[in-house]
Amino acid sequence: MALLAHIPDPEIPVISLTDLGIIREIRDGPPPILVITPTYTGCPASIAINASIRMALDGAGLADVQIKTELSPPWTTDWISESGRQALLAYGIAPPEPRAARLARQDEAPATCPQCGSHATAEISRFGSTPCKALWRCLDCAEPFDRFKCI
């Protein structure tokens, strides 16, 4: 796990794979199996993530560990760690709101602008630069920013 905490997400390098919550478990072998889960089914980063995990494992002399992808239960943005959320915000990406809060409401709550901290923000497009993000803008400082979609 400590090894994986140093592998950055290929699209958002400030957050590690463990912070992102896509490392599900390590099952004792033989052979030992590292179970991971994709964020979005079609996320192109999945291939790069698998490759970087493989390289890290091989580099640490753990070539016998197999990587397995499991879908159920499906990944949720609630699995992003608190340190991961802070890293996203510092990087300029508004972190997702908790899923329970999101489901209790029809529309998403305004995001906090990662630039100026204002809560006066509005969605520009529900689909942003990667599958996991939506495009928002700040009504006060007028900066556009990415927001992690809550799923």
Partner: peptide, 20 residues
């Protein structure tokens, strides 16, 4: 541009579904 991104994103999700 926003619609372009949205349609491509939806297509990508569908491609992921297809793969699984």
């Amino acid at each position: 541009l926003e619609v372009d991104l949205a349609l491509a994103n939806i297509g990508l999700d569908l491609l992921g579904q297809a793969q699984f």
